[in-house]
Design a protein around this nucleic acid. Structure first.
Lengths: 208, 208
DNA sequence: CGTTCGGTTTGACCGAAATCAATGACGTCG
DNA sequence: CGACGTCATTGATTTCGGTCAAACCGAACG
């Protein structure tokens, strides 16, 4: 039903859907791919505020300006709504608002847990936590031979720089601790974007 | 109308309303005072996830467990609802859900902005940002002579240790940078909990 | 096949914040 | 009043991550 007022839009990896500070004229639903929400600091560095995955919601209903930029990490497909249409539609359909509320509450919890990572963990813990979380989000979907005991193997969705931006680190620190985790025998790095986890449990323990 | 299913509860400073990991049997509305949402890290330190002020909402509707502990910072008064009552009531009153959704979205934005503080700011910037934000939240409410140009004077709601927990720092670092800001002439510290801001604008500039 | 280019790794060094330790200020209670 | 306990400040030292700089690697291209 929502589809009547929305339209599909394809994005290439790297393409920007929303700019920080834009008038919040649209909201969207992720159909396919991964996008990042991010903001620039005064000194030009970036802090990634969150990642959105298929079925996630995106944009700022009932507000004036978009508080973050949205950029496609991978090729992606989203369903875009004009704010005015969406707001009206939502008000008329309590079921939709309820669903949206549940999602927003879940997102708030996820975001708060990320605050602990940013505020209290050291680089190694951040990295280990991120890798475990990524593995858990990616494996069940992509991979058939998921249950090789504790081992996993996957393609990282983010570049080193993007991982640094997510974790509040620099690219060098990310790189260093990746090799450290490799030397400690917890992970393998067959290629830039390739990762094997030797023991998910052991890696999770490094995450605090 | 909501009051029919809720009951008032008074809390003393330091009293715990909810424990992390509790079954989420209640939600609440803050009537008066300030409370903190926080979680423990594995090594026993605390990370404060957020502060809630009067009219803010608290707890986890539509979920299973409370993802954080809630403790009163000051003496406080809250209006508590049994989860089952509240969930049913909410479903029957779309206006309430809508209001709750707006609040949750606003809270999510605030939380994401805090992520930038935790991930990308240095100690001085964190502190300056926190002080400015506290001043802005406290002054209009408490104080009549608010418009002495750029100067403000207030009582800090948090101890040094609590400020450290909010900002992801240690108490020593907080203390050091407080005295630094004082020596730089940006603030005055007439007493442990007393703060005067000489120029809100100048202080805000330190915040990045 | 060699060049180029972006992303990545590695190293040397530096600085900010954590840690460890002592001292100081303030309120409370005997 | 004086002793104690809590909270805060200050100092010395260490450590982790950032910065700057150089080398590396693989893919795309002429």
């Amino acid at each position: 039903m929502l589809n009547a007022i929305g339209r599909r839009k394809r994005l290439q990896a790297g393409e920007q859907l929303l700019w920080e500070g834009d008038d919040a004229i649209i909201v969207a639903n992720v159909v396919e791919g991964v996008l990042k929400l991010s903001t620039q600091t005064a000194d030009g560095r970036e802090q990634i505020l969150g990642m959105v995955y298929p079925s996630d919601f995106l944009g700022r209903p009932f507000g004036e300006t978009t508080p973050y930029g949205v950029e496609a990490i991978t090729d992606a497909q989203v369903c875009v709504f004009r704010r005015t249409d969406f707001d009206r539609f939502a008000r008329e359909h309590p079921r939709l608002e309820h669903k949206l509320l549940e999602r927003t509450l879940a997102e708030l919890d996820r975001t708060r847990r990320w605050m602990v990572l940013l505020g209290r963990m050291n680089a190694e813990q951040k990295l280990a936590t991120y890798l475990v979380e990524t593995a858990e989000r990616l494996i069940p979907a992509n991979c058939e031979e998921a249950e090789l005991g504790d081992e996993r193997s996957l393609t990282l969705p983010l570049s080193r720089q993007q991982m640094a931006d997510v974790l509040g680190l620099t690219i060098e620190t990310v790189s260093r601790h990746m090799t450290k985790l490799k030397n400690d025998g917890l992970i393998g790095l067959p290629g830039r974007r390739e990762l094997t986890i030797n023991s998910l449990k052991a890696l999770a323990e490094r995450g605090g």
